[in-house]
Each structure stands twice: as structure tokens, then as C-alpha cells.
């Protein structure tokens, strides 16, 4: 049986004025896989993410999620459809508590509305309680439960990264976009994170697309990857073939490196 394609991009292109940030990006991502999008700084990886998650409307091309066209739909609807994301520069709700941050993530699946809160309806009280419980459960998975009452902005860096992923998972996604989850981490933390990403894939039945510009860290965790340079896809394939690809080496290390080798 052929695995199901969960997300597909066709000829995805983004132009900012005269600059083409991403040109003709084609990808088929299979359900349950962990795949990577790599490339040097400014290669257009985050632009790709922004197009998939609805923050940018692509200049050209399509994004298909589970067969449905989601090109140009606003971010909140993309999230409702089942695509969650994190940000390269951590974006938490800094003045809220850790628990509140995760609860906000649960909101997209909440059925009762604000006026039911005001009327003190039992259905709403029950759901709010269930959301708090679910959020605590998620914090436990991420080892943050003891920090539930702390302000999000007071957390150490690593915990903030984990909280951002926990919050994304609270929206009950099927597809998770991680924008440089290992940025600012030391090699050991990065290793732990990669193991952790594999764990949550199993536990939450996710498909994960992650961005990294550090090639070493993604080699271990990704099953398939795309390499971008100046907006163009210069290589695609499993880690082994990427490692050996001269174009990739050139993009990362410069031409001299190839000559030396």
C-alpha cells in the first residue's frame, strides 16, 4: 500500500517586489513522516512555512492539505484544518501563565462560546475544566507541569521552546511545522530535542516538517529533505543522498570546499 500524501505543494512561488524569495517549490509529504527543509540563512525556508501556514498568500502555486486546497486561507483557518506551527523567534503570550498559553491553543477546538461563560452555563464550566485538564496533561508530556503557574516570559529559553511546541499541539494538529526548533541550543540539548520530536510524532500521530540551517542536526531525524538556496530547490531526497550532493556542499561551504575535497 502506498502511504497517503498529507501535504503537497505545487509550484509554490513567493515574490516580494523584484525579489523571488521562493521559486517553484514542489513537495509531497507522506503521512507520519518527519521531513526537513534546510538551507543557508535567507534561503526562503521561513517564507515557505509562512505560505503553508497561511501567513503569506503565495504569488503562484498551490498548497494542498489532505487533498483540499488551502492556498491563501487565513492562518486561523489553516490551524483549524489541522496545521500547527512554531516560530523561529519564540512567540509566546509572555504575560500569560504557562498553563494559559496552552489553554489558548485548546481554544480552536472549544465548542462553547463566550456568552455561555457569562451566563455561567454548566456545559461551559465543564468544558473549561476539561481544557485546563488537557492543558495540564500536555504540560506533563513536556515536563513543564511544575511551571504551570509561572509567567511564560520568565521561563528559561529551552522551556520556552518546549512550551511553544506544547501550545501548538494543543490545537490538535495532524501536521506540525517547526521553525528552527534547535536554534540556540547546545549539541546535547539538540540531540535530546530530536529524540523528543520522534516521540511526539508517535504519541500524537503527527507528520512533522522542520526547518534547520544546521545540517548535522536534521540528518539524524529526517527521513526526507529539501534543500533551498536563494529560493530555489537545489536538492531533494533522503539524508544520505543530500550529504553527498555537491550542490548542497557548495551552498553550505562554498566552492573551494569542493575543490579541496
Amino acid at each position: 500500500m502506498k502511504p497517503e500524501v498529507i501535504l503537497e505543494t505545487r509550484k509554490l512561488t513567493m515574490r516580494f517586489g523584484g525579489l523571488t524569495a521562493v521559486d517553484d517549490f514542489n513537495a509531497k509529504i507522506y503521512k507520519g513522516s518527519i521531513v526537513g527543509l534546510i538551507g543557508p540563512n535567507g534561503a526562503g525556508k521561513t517564507t515557505c512555512f509562512n505560505m503553508i501556514s497561511g501567513f503569506y498568500a503565495p504569488s503562484d502555486g498551490r498548497v494542498l492539505f489532505k487533498g483540499a486546497d488551502i492556498t491563501g486561507t487565513p492562518p486561523h483557518e489553516v490551524c483549524r484544518a489541522g496545521v500547527a506551527r512554531t516560530f523561529q523567534n519564540i512567540r509566546l503570550f509572555g504575560n500569560g501563565t504557562v498553563l494559559q498559553n496552552v489553554m489558548v491553543g485548546c481554544h480552536v477546538r472549544q465548542k462553547t462560546s463566550w456568552w455561555q461563560t457569562v451566563l455561567y452555563l454548566p456545559s461551559n464550566l465543564k468544558e473549561e475544566k476539561a481544557i485546563a485538564e488537557k492543558s495540564r496533561g500536555l504540560l506533563k508530556v513536556f515536563g513543564l507541569e511544575h511551571l504551570a503557574g509561572e509567567k511564560a516570559k520568565s521561563l528559561p529559553y529551552g522551556a520556552q521552546r518546549r512550551l511553544e511546541i506544547a501550545r501548538a499541539l494543543a490545537t490538535e494538529p495532524q501536521f506540525l511545522l517547526l521553525d528552527e526548533p534547535a536554534a540556540g541550543m547546545n549539541p546535547q540539548e539538540t540531540n535530546e530535542l530530536m529524540g523528543f520530536i520522534r516521540d511526539i510524532r508517535e504519541q500524537f500521530k503527527l507528520t512533522i516538517l522542520l526547518i534547520e540551517h544546521d545540517m548535522k542536526v536534521v540528518m539524524g531525524v529526517c527521513e526526507h529533505m529539501w534543500v533551498l538556496d536563494y529560493g530555489e530547490t537545489i536538492a531533494e531526497g533522503p539524508p544520505e543522498s543530500i550529504k553527498a550532493n555537491p550542490k548542497v556542499i557548495e551552498a553550505y561551504l562554498g566552492e573551494e570546499a569542493i575543490a579541496d575535497a
Partner: peptide, 10 residues
């Protein structure tokens, strides 16, 4: 606190 993040949270 953060509009883009709120959007991303649906």
C-alpha cells in the same frame, strides 16, 4: 501579547 502567534493558534 502576540498577534501572529494568536493567529497561528487558530
Amino acid at each position: 501579547d502576540d498577534e501572529p502567534a494568536a493567529k497561528a493558534m487558530g
